[in-house]
Design a protein around this nucleic acid. Structure first.
Length: 583
RNA sequence: GCACCUAUGGUGAAAUGGAUAUCACAACGGUCUUCGGAACCGUCGUUUCAGGUUCGAGUCCUGAUAGGUGCACCA
């Protein structure tokens, strides 16, 4: 439709003013009262035309509107001038009727942004031996949504998860386990509620606490620091049986706990990459390109001087003076692995913003090694989840684990549903899905980049701008559909009410909202759209009786309700949120 | 110190350079309790400061102020 209008305006410009090749915009006005499309053509050309024609913006707009009115296609019902000279287009009832029919038949306009593109999306990236904290929850929610949006826009997505199974943090955890320290073993790991009764995260929590203990001692005790550094070296060398045994046991236990969380969150991965493998590959790359002069020795370490290629970057260590590969080196190995395993048009990595500079340096190093890969690397960063006081960190004690956050939200949902008559298993299933929605929506409703202030009160509150509000609106719509069907009403667009409802105008914008989100890789556009859509439906619902067999417009209203429920379900899916049958 | 990011009602957020800056929470007042009230309607109140570009700036540029992140052997 947008291109139709553009063509029409271009024709008008040629006919009325003998102009061609003018850059102007045809956009969706924010206010529905400003029509379905609007253009700033008159404002854009008035400066050059006004002198010659001795007329103002309003006159120019009037001339164009006159021409358009005489030549407009049937989809356009009305054209008018508004404000400082905008031309607003209102589409006809027939147009919306047709759109509604297409939605009911599930015919989507073809997505284009990622068509025929193969994209790997790496996200979540928790580390074995460390707690799965709410930062991982955040990365996961964003990554899953971006993956789904790219798929909806025609792309083929390969999901990857990169987990740090070697490194200093592992040494700290193993040292902590070796101590069997009383403060760790005496801690209670009893499940907090029924929801976590069969949750196998018990061991992971124990190991996480051992890690925190080891980490604190590492910073405060020189002797312990030395012991842990030795363990770190031994992990890479794999020649100490005791350490190997703890390592294998701890790695499996934490990975299994992560799988439990992934199931709750609705994520599956095609590839699991591990730092232990990437370290070997990365080291080989660094050594090869050390000989070519890309990497140099400095203070006993092997470094990459990124500032020589880009003044905004800085030097980073790739192989330590202890001869251990750093995260940077592993990143090189990881990137090469990704491109060797899959033919990719784009490789996207999602992490917290703290990794930004580090990733820029790693990418610059990659540009010297495989420039064709570096071209396709894209790093998307997000802000951090914060407490009211201070930053989330699993290195310190003040960590909120992903499990506990999910658990709190689910308990809250259960509490809200206790009045509803339904089976216990159904209730618990719904509570789980609602809790996930509360957290995911809190993360995805705002633009990436900014921090999210984690407020337990607000995050589990289900009022207004929240995931559960969206789910509730959808289940309520489904419930009316069931009621109407029971009454023998069949959805149809044959008999149309005299006015066009706002809800149908908004529904038509779903596809373009998805494309916008796909282009910018910003899920929050969809979240914003869904809130607007849901609140308009709730208005519609409050003002109109849908399931009324005596109402000649009931089939039309039912059709709208069906389209709404379908669109909400699709939109929520793109946010990684599913809708419970009942709630 | 250098680099990057951020600054929008009391609070949390939205807004491809467009029109009267949108939404939620909170507060206050109502609907109604008849298709599921986790609802609906109304009132209140906002672009950090100083310049600049533009027909038009929350958005772009310059400077200031405030906050955040990163800056070599952690990941």
């Amino acid at each position: 439709m947008e291109s139709t209008i553009k063509e029409l305006i271009n024709k008008a410009l040629r006919e009325c003013f003998d102009m061609a090749e003018v850059a102007f915009a045809v956009e969706r006005p924010k206010e529905l009262t400003h029509g379905d499309y609007a253009t700033n053509v008159a404002l854009v050309i008035s400066k050059t035309l006004a002198k010659n024609l001795n007329s103002g913006t309003q006159d120019i707009a009037a001339t164009l509107v006159g021409y358009i009115n005489d030549n407009k296609p049937p989809e356009i019902a009305d054209v008018s001038i508004a404000g400082p000279g905008f031309i607003n287009f209102s589409l006809s009832k027939e147009f919306f009727n047709m759109q509604l029919n297409m939605m009911l038949e599930q015919k989507n306009t073809s997505p284009i942004t990622w068509e025929e593109k193969r994209v790997m999306v790496e996200y979540t990236d928790p580390n074995p031996f460390k707690p799965f904290h709410i930062g991982h929850l955040m990365t996961n929610a964003i990554g899953e949504s971006i993956a789904r949006i790219i798929t909806a826009s025609g792309g083929e997505v390969i999901r990857a998860n990169y987990q740090g199974d070697v490194g200093l943090h592992v040494a700290k955890a193993i040292w902590g386990i070796q101590q069997q320290s009383s403060w760790v073993t005496e801690k209670q790991y009893a499940p907090k509620s029924l929801l976590s009764k069969n949750n196998p995260t018990y061991l992971a929590q124990y190991i996480g606490d051992c890690y925190v203990f080891g980490s604190e001692k590492y910073d405060s005790d020189e002797g312990v620091k030395k012991e842990i550094d030795i363990i770190n070296k031994k992990i890479y060398e794999k020649d100490d049986d005791d350490i190997n045994a703890i390592y294998v046991w701890g790695r499996e236990a934490t990975l299994e706990a992560f799988e439990t969380i992934y199931r709750t969150l609705g994520t599956t991965f095609d590839y699991y990459f591990f730092e232990s493998d990437m370290a070997i590959k990365g080291r080989a790359l660094v050594e090869r390109f050390f000989e070519k002069g890309v990497f140099v020795k400095s203070d006993g370490a092997i470094v990459f001087k990124a500032e020589e290629y880009n003044p905004k970057l800085h030097t980073r260590v790739f192989i330590t003076s202890n001869d251990l590969p750093t995260y940077e080196t592993k990143e090189l190995g990881l990137t090469e692995t990704k491109f060797e395993k899959e033919t990719l048009d784009q490789s996207i990595v999602i992490t917290a913003v703290e990794q930004k500079d580090y990733m820029a340096v790693a990418t610059e190093a990659m540009r010297q090694i495989h420039p064709e890969y570096a071209e396709k690397m894209k790093h998307i960063t997000h802000g951090m989840m914060r407490f009211a006081a201070g930053k989330m960190s699993s290195r310190k004690g003040n960590v909120i684990t992903g499990e506990s956050l999910l658990n709190d939200a689910q308990v809250m949902a259960l509490e809200k549903m206790k009045e509803r008559a339904m089976d216990e298993s159904v209730r618990e299933g719904a509570a789980s899905v609602i809790g996930v929605a509360a957290i995911k929506y809190a993360i995805l409703r705002q633009a990436l980049g900014g921090d999210i202030i984690y407020d337990p009160e607000q995050s589990v509150s289900f009022d207004g701008d929240s995931g559960p509000y969206l789910q509730y609106s959808t289940t309520r719509a489904r419930s009316v559909i069931a009621k109407a069907t029971e009454l023998g009403i069949v959805a149809s667009t044959k008999i149309t009410p005299p006015a066009i409802y706002e809800i149908e105008k908004i529904l038509c914008r779903f596809e373009e909202t998805v494309e916008h989100a796909a282009k910018t890789l910003e899920p929050h556009h969809i979240a914003t759209f869904l809130i607007d859509l849901a609140s308009r439906f709730n208005s519609f619902y409050a003002n109109e009786i849908i399931a009324d067999p005596d109402d000649m417009y009931a089939p039309y209203k039912l059709a709208l309700t069906k389209a709404f429920a379908q669109t909400m379900t699709n939109g929520l899916y793109l946010l990684g949120i599913s809708v419970p049958e009942k709630m």
